[in-house]
Design a protein around this nucleic acid. Structure first.
Length: 876
RNA sequence: GGGUGAUUAGCUCAGUUGGUUCAGAGCACUACCUUGACAGGGUAGGGGUCACUGGUUCGAAUCCAGUAUCACUCACCA
């Protein structure tokens, strides 16, 4: 049969993905096996695959496939997130292109557009994941706005409201004036910007005195309702109890005292603007100050802005400074670096704004969530995130869960009157009406008398239920699936959303099931380019993932991503890694091609070398398997891959196959052949999680298999005890072979020329790999001798010496120099060991074992020195 | 500003409680080899004062203190 020497990933990958799908291997149903569950971090429904997803989902697929091989009932639930702000912004932009203004649409009309958009672009990303090989249970695909997912959200909202954990508050929130919505604290980014600090003079009422305040936001003076000084500040003792006059609007405001004021900063006088600063708001509440909001929702000034009404806040800032300068109220301007909050979505500068919003109390819910992670109930991998998590959770603030958006679950609060408190919370309008009638004791209330709150819930308020809601565990907490699959096993996600999402899922899990949502959280790094820049669309530095798969094959890309991504470390993505991955794919393919190409003969007896090779490789495989299992258990996926890589490339291809290889054109004996296939199959099993396609392709090419015999559902190799001495013996033999090769290279002896090898066995151990040494070194005769040969080349492995008598002249001087060098190194080494051993404090203090080791080193070195000296003598 | 973590070969990273020749791996690099699986192969090699300075110890990449640089994270002094 003719098998191409280049593995063709493209041809193979679709074939096997279809085959897996057709045979339903990805699908999981409740059964008697132990479950292994992962829920996907749902990507934005209208998003496209980026490198972060690639990394993330490759890791999940590795874990799931391995679990499947290990006999678990593996279930990987896929799905997408409605991503309220992001999606709504995209739809608004698209409508704008069509000349439609969102404000001209009704809520229902807008939602229709949003759904159209979702149906058109939604799920592309899930299709893309299939090219990566993701073995998700596609029958379970969920969307956070599916009917029962939304119903779960509403149910939880009502429940938490009834428990008193959700409340409506008039609070300072982060306002995005461009999207005209509030944002949670987590959706605000702070950046340093060069700004100015303006020193403004306020007249003190009833005197000719002025006081000076410093501010970065001069436009807000129109909303000032007090000046605050520190009561301990003697400089301002004369101002106590007085009032000041705000320039421009000439309002008279009190001068209050509070220790909050930092005497060192600015002038020591603080203007208080409760409507536009969180701290000022707190001061205002403490001192009962008026609140004057001078801004409209789009951050233009309202009627408190007087002649600036209708102008944007930044325009006003510039203009008001001019006016203040003209009126002599500006005393100086300094450069000042301050941090400005911007919207993660729109980039607009955030305005602190007082408004009515819905909040969720976090303190009590955080408690079990802290305990779970600090204890060992939930493991964070890597552990370094534990401190960050703890710190955040212990200082968690109430969560603003309302958004002034339409795309999302509408808040189930229904107003029946004009008062702020005239509302009921209920799962449906009908239930709300019932409740409202009860509360108002007005049986004549009608459905149309109720108005539902216009706001939608924060996206994370639906995703925090994800591990439960995908199994319908909120609506039917007793159902079979949730009881079987929950808690899930591993969550693989980016550290950026540790608080947005992970922490909140933990809280929700304990609140609604009294149990953690997952056992382990694997936090991946951020995928960056070679210059350490985060990969992003705007920078254009992100390669197209599907293009990579096209070029290197899914297996190649998977290996490329994993090779350098220890948990929690950022991954410096480099296409060369994918190249390495695809080279590995090709290597595996060709190793298989070699074996498959041999003619099998029942007539031939199994050679000794093959026997030893098989014996050794089986032990070596077990040794590697032990390492690999250990890496997996610590979630060191890239190390597990590296161990597998080395096992296959070095041990299997470079050593094992070379040892069992028959002479060119010769057939191979049947016993060896079958044993080779046996170990090859074990190799494929441990390769499968990393490289599902090439492994299945080879598996199915070895021999025809029924659908019950596919590799994807094969049985992971058992760990067994193994012969460690054989590994040691082989290690010695391979060093001898390396020694022979080195001499061949140094002396320019071609491999086709057979040479003699003589061994002086000082260790007095027999090495059962003599036949292997002979084959791999192309040795004509291999003898044990008791005396060194005269005029021979030599090398040493530990304290054993090997000689190769050479036909023709050898460069005696060069040979002597080499031995001399080795000798002085060894003597130096012996000296340092002696020094250690003659140090009484070392001998007294070090553990016996360590001393024994040093003594052995000494004996070893002495023996070697003897041998070297003998060699030198021999040469002269 | 607070907190956390990092700094080991050209690059990306291992190095588990201080002690085997512990200074490592992969890639990259250099020289040579190759017509018999694979040039995406093989063999051999070069390359690091373990950020710096002190300390503890018989012994430090490993523990402690300080310094420098970086990253992340929280807060937001107008």
């Amino acid at each position: 049969m003719a098998i191409a020497s280049q593995y063709n990933a493209k041809k193979v990958e679709d074939k096997w993905y279809d085959y897996w799908m057709k045979n339903n291997y990805f699908h999981s149903e409740v059964d008697e096996r132990e479950p292994y569950t992962i829920v996907i971090p749902p990507p934005n429904v209208t998003g496209v695959l980026h490198m972060g997803h690639m990394l993330n989902n490759t890791i999940q697929d590795v874990l799931v496939r391995r679990a499947r091989l290990k006999g678990y009932n593996a279930c990987w639930v896929p799905g997408t997130d409605h991503a309220s702000i992001a999606t709504e912004a995209k739809v608004v932009a698209k409508l704008k292109e069509e000349g439609i203004d969102k404000n001209d649409l009704s809520r229902d009309e807008f939602l229709q557009h949003a759904w159209d958009w979702t149906h058109k672009h939604g799920g592309i990303i899930l299709q893309q994941l299939k090219h990566l090989g993701a073995s998700c249970d596609w029958e379970r695909t969920k969307f956070t706005m599916d009917d029962n997912m939304s119903a779960s959200v509403i149910k939880v909202f009502v429940d938490l409201y009834e428990k008193g954990l959700i409340y409506r508050g008039y609070r300072m929130v982060n306002w995005d004036p461009q999207a005209k919505t509030t944002l949670s604290d987590e959706e605000v980014n702070y950046e340093e910007r060069n700004g100015k600090l303006f020193y403004l003079k306020y007249k003190v009422e009833g005197s000719d005195d002025y006081l000076t305040i410093a501010t970065t936001r001069p436009e807000t003076i129109l909303g000032d309702t007090a000046i605050c000084i520190n009561p301990n500040d003697e400089r301002f003792a004369h101002l106590r109890g007085k009032k000041a006059i705000v320039p421009i609007c000439n309002r008279t405001i009190p001068i209050i005292e509070d220790e909050y004021v930092d005497m060192e900063f600015g002038t020591g006088c603080l203007k208080v603007t409760p409507a536009h600063d969180e701290n000022d708001k707190n001061l205002g509440e403490k001192h009962n100050l008026d609140v004057i909001d001078i801004l409209n929702d789009d951050a233009t000034l309202n009627n408190y802005g007087l002649h600036y009404e209708g102008k944007d806040r930044f325009v006003v800032r510039a203009e008001i400074v001019e006016e203040l300068e003209l009126s002599g109220n500006l005393s100086k301007v300094e450069d000042h670096v301050n941090k400005v909050g911007t919207s993660e979505r729109t980039g607009a500068v955030i305005e602190p704004k007082l408004s009515d919003q819905w909040f969720l109390k976090m303190k009590e819910m955080a408690e079990p969530a802290i305990k779970a992670v600090v204890g060992d109930d939930i493991n964070l991998v890597p552990e370094k995130f534990l401190n960050t998590y703890k710190h955040w959770m212990e200082n968690v603030r109430d969560w603003n869960i309302s958004r002034q958006l339409w795309w999302g679950q509408q808040i189930p609060a229904f107003f029946y009157g004009n008062g702020k408190e005239d509302f009921v919370v209920a799962e449906t309008a009908e239930l709300a009406l019932e409740k409202a009638r009860k509360v108002t004791q007005n049986e004549s209330l009608q459905a149309e008398d109720l108005t539902q709150d216009k706001d939608a819930l924060d996206t994370w308020f639906s995703s925090w239920l994800w591990p439960m809601s995908v199994f319908n565990g909120i609506l039917e907490p007793e159902n079979k699936e949730i009881q079987y699959y929950y808690p899930t096993n591993d969550l693989v996600t980016a550290p950026e959303i540790l608080f947005f999402w992970v922490a909140r899922m933990i809280m929700a899990g304990y609140e609604y099931r009294g149990e953690k949502p997952f056992k382990n959280v694997y936090l991946t790094g951020i995928v960056r380019d070679k210059q350490r820049r985060k990969m992003s669309k705007s920078l254009g530095n992100s390669p197209d993932p599907l293009g990579l798969i096209e070029q290197y094959g899914a297996d190649g890309v998977r290996v490329g991503m994993l090779l350098s991504s220890p948990a929690g470390n950022d991954l410096m993505f480099d296409e060369d890694l994918c190249k390495q991955g695809s080279a590995f794919t090709n290597k595996i393919w060709n190793a298989f091609r070699l074996v498959k190409g041999w003619e099998i003969s029942e007539e031939i007896e199994q050679p000794e070398t093959a026997k030893k090779a098989i014996e050794w490789y089986k032990a070596k495989f077990q040794l590697s398997l032990r390492e690999i299992e250990d890496h997996y258990s610590k979630y060191r996926i890239s190390d597990a891959l590296m161990s597998t890589y080395k096992l296959i490339w070095d041990d299997y291809c470079s050593w094992f196959l070379e040892m069992v290889k028959p002479g060119y054109g010769d057939p191979i004996d049947a016993v060896t052949y079958n044993q080779i296939i046996e170990v090859l199959e074990d190799n494929l099993k441990i390769l499968h999680p990393f490289m599902p396609f090439v492994s299945e392709e080879i598996w199915q090419t070895i021999t025809e298999r029924s659908s019950e015999e596919a590799l994807i559902i094969a049985k992971w190799p058992e760990q067994t005890s193994f012969d460690e001495t054989i590994i040691k013996e082989f290690a010695h033999a391979s060093e001898v072979i390396a020694g022979v090769r080195k001499i061949r290279k140094d002396k320019n002896i071609a491999f086709k020329n057979q040479i003699e090898l003589m061994a002086m066995n000082n260790e007095n151990t027999s090495n059962s790999f003599d036949s292997v040494i002979a084959k791999m070194g192309n040795i004509s005769s291999y003898n044990y001798v008791t005396e060194a040969a005269v005029g021979a080349l030599s090398f040493r492995v530990r304290s054993n010496e090997y000689y190769i008598p050479i036909v023709g002249a050898i460069d005696v001087d060069a040979e002597k120099a080499k031995i001399q060098e080795e000798l002085s190194y060894t003597e130096g080494f012996l000296k340092s060991v002696d020094k250690k051993l003659s140090n009484k404090r070392f001998v007294d203090n070090a553990p016996e074992k360590v001393v024994a080791i040093e003594k052995a080193k000494k004996a070893d070195a002495e023996a070697k020195i003897e041998a070297l000296k003998a060699s030198l003598k021999n040469l002269s």
